[in-house]
Design a protein around this nucleic acid. Structure first.
Lengths: 219, 219
DNA sequence: GATACACGTTCTCCGTCTGTTCACGGGGGA
DNA sequence: TCCCCCGTGAACAGACGGAGAACGTGTATC
């Protein structure tokens, strides 16, 4: 599950947390692992986070939290290991991890934004098919109850019916979340905000990248 | 999770609370941390609040509440640590199962609706504390992006600050989701829909049953 | 109800600490 | 071979924290 270095770092964080009460800074970890650069630490931390051994607040100082320890680790003090203290109360395995492809804004096709981040959602929210998540940027869909900062769950499809909310890629360059409508030979993308105007394109300029399947908001 | 200063302040607040019964003022905290200005304290407090270690009422004197303690902190007195008194189950898993207490509509207090259904949500969506879910009924909060049929995730608390969206039980009979505001001696519950009017009640008629913590929508 | 006081909030300025990212490279396993 | 792990170095952005002052807000008091 972990490489030797990752394991060493994880145990160091655990010990540091236990003895001083605060998580170590990147420089302290660099020192402890006998490295000369922090960027190696950064990679190890990312790996530990990806493997769900630690949790952290991004861009925050000393904001690490150890979630669990590798198998066979000795406890920090004379106490029980952290893993035993958390008996893992909830099973409920009906969730799905989907990739979070960044913010949906102007500029880049969705495929380009292959973020490493993942997003866990209840399986009940999603239908069949492949999905991904986007963070909504801007207020063009407020009248549909889609606000800036919301997470849109998108089902990967390349067709849409009138009235459906889709991720549309215009001219292979700009992706937006809009209501899809056909208008004669043209495609119309309707915002849900009176301050914005509907846009019309010829079908060959518009590529559907998915259909809105769910929405998640944090307060 | 915390920097040294943040941890120091949190432990001071805990001790002060424990020995004198009230939370310290900003000046007392400034003194305790050996600072010459309160603004540093303010920033530390904000960081602690952001990390969900404390809760507070804005513009209220000495209105701090310790929600949990950093890992490895010794208890204040000879008693059990605050963390044990308040279970605050932050699951290490990715998801948490919370009860779905039916639709929020007129008629009945939330407790009465002990539905058997459960609702699985990503743990990242919820902070500490106990939560439950409600299905939103009606369009009184559309301008906040809360639509009929959405699922509101509610943190079980009995206090609210101005501007927060809460589940309020009126006269022990009718529960609604509204924005909470104080207005002089009265409590005002604001809808987010121009077609509805704000309602005013004396505080003893209103019981807060929770605070909006997240929102989930299915398309 | 006017006033005074205590307290919390916000701002600017500043220096330091810390995390992030990039580009470079080497080694080893599948 | 490609891919992953690991190391280095440097530059940068932003968080953190301290000082001081002005300003709001709540509460008590008269």
């Amino acid at each position: 599950m972990l490489t030797a270095k990752q394991r060493e770092l994880l145990l160091f964080i655990r010990d540091h947390l236990h003895s001083s009460g605060v998580s170590p800074s990147f420089d302290e970890m660099r020192e402890a692992l006998d490295l000369k650069s922090k960027s190696g630490v950064h990679r190890l931390i990312s790996a530990l986070e990806e493997r769900q051994f630690i949790r952290r607040l991004p861009n925050r100082a000393r904001a690490l939290e150890v979630l669990r320890l590798p198998d066979g680790a000795s406890p920090a003090g004379s106490e029980v290991p952290a893993s035993a203290a958390k008996p893992v109360p909830i099973a409920a395995n009906d969730t799905i991890d989907i990739p979070l492809h960044g913010r949906i804004a102007a500029g880049t096709p969705i495929e380009a934004l292959q973020g490493s981040e993942n997003f866990t959602v209840p399986a009940a929210l999603l239908g069949p098919g492949e999905h991904y998540a986007l963070e909504v940027s801007g207020d063009s869909m407020v009248e549909e109850g889609i606000l800036d900062g919301d997470f849109a769950l998108i089902r990967k499809v390349d067709t849409a019916r009138d009235g459906e909310i889709v991720v549309a890629l215009i001219d292979e360059a700009e992706a937006t979340l809009k209501t899809f409508r056909r208008e004669g030979q043209m495609v119309r993308l309707d915002p849900a905000n009176r301050s914005y105007e509907a846009q019309r394109y010829s079908p060959d300029r518009v590529r559907i990248q998915g259909r809105l399947a769910g929405l998640i908001r944090r307060y």
